[in-house]
Structure formats: C-alpha cells, structure tokens
Simulated assay, not measured.
Amino acid sequence: MSIDPSSIPNFGGQQPDQQETGPTGPVVPDQDLVKQLLDQMELKYVVDDEGDLAAPWEEFRTYFMFRGEAEQQVFSVRTFYDRPHKIEEKGAVLESIDDWNRRTLWPKVYSHTHDDGTVRLIGEAQMLIGTGVSLEHFVSSVVSWVRASIEFDKWMVEQLGLEKDAGSGADGEDSASDS
C-alpha cells in the first residue's frame, strides 16, 4: 500500500509532484505505512528499543505506536514533552492543560510527576485501526496530530511565559527534519 502524496496536507516541505494510486477501501495501517508518511513529511525518525517509531524535536519527542491484537488494535501518537516543570508550578500547569483539553480535540494532554518532583507533560491521540480505516483519514489524522503536538508546545510556552532555547527558529517551530 502506498500513500498518494497529494493527500498529505502541506507540512512545510515541498509537495511531491508524482501521483500514486493507493488502496480505495479500508486499510490496516502498519509501521511501514507510518515510516512512508514520515518520509514524505520530511521528518526524521528512529526506531527505539521496543520497536516503536519516534520523531525527535528539541523540546519533545513523538512516538507512533501500535498496541493490541487483531480487531482491537490501536494506533497511538504520544508526545513526551521534555521541559521540566517544578512541583510548585503544577497548579498553573494543570490549569493550562485543562484549558487546552477543553479547547482542542488533540492531543489530549496530561501530567506525570516524577520521583524527583519534576512535572512533565504527555500528549496523546489514538485511533482504533484493527478493522481498517480509510487511508485518507489515517494520513490526515496523523499529520494533524503531529502539527497539534508542535502547536501545543508553542502554546504552553506562551501560556506560561516560558522562553524558548536560543537555538530555536524565529517562529519557535523546530522540526524533526532539522539536522
């Protein structure tokens, strides 16, 4: 199965000119399909020790994971935001992520407090894929989820008055395709 390049919303890179024909019925996405999509989005990725795909940015990393069996299989895009928050800031952080979760569909964001008292954020979106999904729906969802993960990071910087690292781009959008 292959992805029609024209079906990928513009993610900042050049849109491929060639047209490919893909399946017209439901497909059950797999890791190879996600790799193809990430390649076409010009995003760098690695496969971790557990076999999951991960696209790293400077302040976060996004994982593309398949869980479950057969008809109950779920595809999850989970973003781990690396910026630590102090336990004393947790109330303000929770207010901000509650506001985000009320206003947006994805990623749904939650907090995790580590043993050392630092609070980190995790964003997640999921899709049941075991019985098959439309390829167009899958592609547009994954692209939207990746974009929303980036937008959440920028939004949190604005909400909490955090400063981006000096190495960040002028618009604050670091891409996994940067070297």
Rank of each mutant, 00 (worst) to 15 (best):
V74Y: 08
V93M: 07
K154Y: 12
F64R: 01
G13Y: 15
D32E: 14
Q19H: 10
G172A: 10
Q40P: 10
F138G: 02
G25C: 06
I87T: 12
A170Q: 15
S96Y: 06
W100N: 00
T131S: 12
K90Y: 12
W155K: 02
D153N: 15
Q159H: 01
F11Q: 07
L128Q: 09
S2I: 08
W57D: 12
L128A: 07
K35S: 07
E151K: 06
K44N: 12
M65D: 03
I8N: 09
V139R: 01
I97R: 08
G22I: 01
V146T: 05
F152P: 00
Q73Y: 05
A176N: 08
T24I: 04
S76L: 14
V47P: 03
A70F: 06
F60S: 15
H112N: 15
T21M: 15
W57C: 12
D39Q: 13
R61L: 11
E136Y: 08
I129T: 00
K108V: 04
G161R: 02
V157M: 01
Q18N: 11
V46N: 12
Q126N: 09
N10Q: 08
I8Y: 09
H114F: 15
A55K: 09
D52H: 07
W57S: 13
R103N: 01
A170K: 15
P9L: 02
L37G: 05
D165N: 14
L160C: 05
Q36Y: 03
M41F: 08
L121I: 13
L37C: 04
A170V: 14
R103P: 01
G132V: 04
Q126R: 11
G25V: 07
A54E: 08
L162N: 10
D165R: 14
K164S: 06
G172I: 04
W145P: 03
W145M: 02
F66H: 00
T131D: 12
S175W: 07
I97K: 07
H112W: 14
A170W: 09
P26D: 02
Q72G: 11
M156F: 01
D49W: 04
A176P: 07
R103H: 00
D4G: 00
Q18V: 14
R147Y: 11
I150K: 03
H112K: 14
Q19M: 10
P26N: 06
M1Y: 09
D98V: 02
S140F: 05
R61Q: 13
V34P: 02
K90H: 14
I122K: 10
S179H: 11
R103T: 00
A166N: 14
R102C: 10
Q159D: 00
W100Q: 01
F80T: 15
W100A: 00
M1H: 11
W57G: 13
E20I: 10
R78T: 11
A92P: 01
N10V: 04
L43F: 05
Q40F: 09
E71P: 01
R78Y: 07
G169L: 15
D153F: 10
L94P: 04
I8C: 08
T62A: 06
D4R: 02
T118R: 09
A125W: 06
F64E: 00
L105Q: 09
E124T: 10
